[in-house]
Design a protein around this nucleic acid. Structure first.
Length: 571
RNA sequence: GACUUUGUAACUCAGCUGGAUAGAGUGCUUCCCUCCUAAGGAAGAAGUCGGCGGUUCAAAUCCGCCCAAGGUCACCA
């Protein structure tokens, strides 16, 4: 429909005898909120000054001069607005045949062809169970992953796991002290986490523990066999559990190169910065100045060891060489905004401008509890595992009550429960802070994942009852002009928006745009569903409506799959 | 203190680069399953768009100041 907008802009420009730039007109044209006011509207107010006439008069005169074609059904003048109504006869055919031709590929684009995007997301810290904070991050990151794939990009999902640092010295200490008191058979990660919390508390009281921890970490850095063996074990145990959750969330990574991977790659960063003479001594540490409005970026600590910033910089260098990325997107909580501003600034000394300009930080608001910030060490966390179980259990009960004769109820319960959870964390603006509320998180009515899933199920149900064959669908002759009531037209026009919705979501790194769009499609379909029976005796209309139902099912499925939400066939 | 994010209905949130009576969902009050699954649909009540100024024909949207909440501010990640 974008080209229709262009067409209107050109027509207006001609009618104005080129007194105004087309681009300017194009920018003014809007989609009225109220469809009573047409599909496109051109406000004439800004012309009042130029033409020295009232907006109403201008609009009236413009209407007379406009030369349009059959794509526009009519034009009306209302309060200085020029309202355009597109000809609905052709639009149904245009859009529906396209969707039915392209099927699951509808919405896919080629803008990203030949370009690589790295997405750095999830990135949990080893030896700590997956909690709600990681969950939001993971779900946003993996939706962006699929979104960019749909736009044609080659995407590299990177899990920059926190598997290095002083805390491992502490963990080794704790493990050696307490390992016999915990059950590693049942839930090794939980055991490790408990030990980590315990040793932290001990370290607070006893200075010597911290000394030991430093010593342990030093041994680990030097490659001490036993230390390395333990570190590997911690990493393995953690990843095993994380992978189990990633599988439930339909999340995948192409690389698990975390902090440890870069431990031997920081020297080069330091050398390069030294060669450019930007590394300066400051209070015993080596830092790079990054402008007056930011504190300097620490590269080498006063004790001579590197810091996470150094490893992040090494990662930028490595990724530019390995992936030749167009963009690298970092998904982290808002608390890291300054950190990324700093290292992106330092990165200009390490990589080509094209890479440096491609670095993007996408912050999201933290998930908090009513009692405050979550902290593994304090023990006030919501473990994602518990939450998933709760979601599955709840949807299981609902299935039992509503539709207990369904098959594979376990799978369904999982699809719906997880769908509700994922959708909940994707539907609102990512920058907004979230206060965790169990009832709100596990809602199944209204603007939720299950609502969209349920709508999809309804489309499938109709198609199944009608014996709709998607392979034959394209070959059939369908009179789409029969679809002309508001319920049908509103739905068709909404389906048309998917490609631009995907593009906007990607541009703004905001998958909630897509989530809300799916709600809108589902709402319009539900309205159509109650008002327009499909399985009727009028064969021609039935066929046309079936095609509309099929197209809707494709759009819902496509959208949900990008969000990482499964589409059950029945529920 | 500096920088930064957020502040729209009782609750959770939409509102794109300013535009026509501010939109949804939840909850509340009603109605709709002899008819494609009611996890649905329809109707209603509910808003000083944090506050005050400014720019503009037009401001929830742009600018300034203020208020409130969260975050960051050098050797944790």
């Amino acid at each position: 429909m974008e080209d229709i907008k262009e067409f209107i802009a050109s027509a207006i420009q001609k009618a104005l005898e080129n007194t105004v730039q087309k681009q300017e007109i194009l920018e003014k044209i809007e989609n009225p909120k109220d469809k009573q006011n047409g599909d496109f509207a051109y406000p004439c107010f800004h012309l009042a000054k130029i033409l020295k006439k009232s907006p109403v008069l201008i609009a009236t005169e413009l209407k007379e001069k406009l030369v349009l074609n059959s794509r526009i059904e009519k034009v009306e003048v209302v309060n200085g607005y020029l309202n355009f109504y597109i000809n609905t006869k052709n639009i149904g055919e245009e859009i529906l045949t396209r969707i039915i031709e392209e099927k699951e590929k509808y919405g896919d684009q080629v803008v990203g062809q030949g370009k690589t995007i790295c997405i750095d997301y999830s990135s949990p810290n080893i030896a700590k169970p997956f909690h709600l904070g990681h969950f939001r991050n993971t779900v946003i990151g993996s939706a962006l992953y699929r979104l960019y794939e749909a736009l044609g990009y080659h995407v590299v999902g990177i899990n920059h796991i926190g598997d290095w640092g002083r805390q491992f010295g502490l963990l080794i200490e704790g493990y050696q002290l307490y390992k016999d008191e915990y059950n590693f058979e049942e839930n090794a990660l939980q055991a490790l986490s408990d030990i980590y919390v315990r040793i932290n508390q001990l370290a607070k009281q006893d200075e010597k523990i911290m000394d030991k921890a430093r010593e342990n970490f030093k041994k680990l850095e030097q490659g001490d066999e036993e230390s390395v063996r333990l570190w590997k074990y911690f990493r393995e145990v953690s990843l095993k559990e994380y992978n189990r959750i990633y599988e439930i969330l339909n999340t995948k990574f192409d690389s698990f190169n975390g902090e440890a991977f870069y431990k031997d790659k920081t020297d080069e960063v330091i050398q390069m910065l030294e060669q450019k003479h930007v590394l300066v001594d400051s209070q015993g540490a080596k830092v790079v100045e990054v402008g007056e409005d930011m504190p300097p970026c620490i590269i080498v600590k006063s004790n001579g060891s590197t810091i996470y910033a150094t490893r992040d910089l090494a990662a930028i260098l490595y990724r530019s060489r390995t992936y030749d990325f167009t963009k690298t997107i970092y998904i982290t909580a808002t608390e890291q905004i300054l950190h990324f501003k700093q290292i992106f600034e330092v990165a200009k000394y390490l990589v080509d401008e094209k890479y440096q300009k491609g670095l993007v930080h996408v912050p999201y608001g933290m998930v908090r509890l009513k009692t405050g910030k979550m902290s593994t060490r304090e023990g006030n966390v919501i473990y994602i595992n518990d939450l998933i179980q709760e979601a599955i259990q709840k949807s299981g009960t609902i299935i039992e009550n509503k539709n207990s004769n369904l098959e594979n109820k376990e799978t369904l319960a999982k699809q719906i429960g997880v769908g509700a959870l994922v959708f909940h964390y994707l539907k609102s603006n990512k920058l907004k802070e979230v206060i965790f509320d169990l009832d709100e998180t596990l809602r199944f009515d209204g603007e939720t994942g299950p609502y969209v899933q349920y709508t999809y199920v309804r489309t499938k149900s109709i198609l199944e009852k009608a014996g709709f064959d998607e392979k034959k669908a394209l070959l059939e002759k369908v009179d789409y002009t029969l679809l002309k009531n508001d319920y049908e037209m509103d739905l068709i026009k909404e389906l048309e928006k998917l490609p631009s919705i995907l593009q906007r979501s990607a541009e703004e790194y905001e998958v909630s745009i897509l989530a809300r769009y799916l709600i809108q499609v589902a709402t319009l379909f539900s309205r159509f569903y109650t008002e327009c029976p499909v399985l009727i005796n009028d064969e021609a209309l039935k066929k046309a409506r079936l095609h509309l139902v099929y197209a809707t099912s494709m759009v819902l499925k496509k959208g949900l799959s990008i969000l990482g939400i499964e589409t059950p066939e029945k529920m």
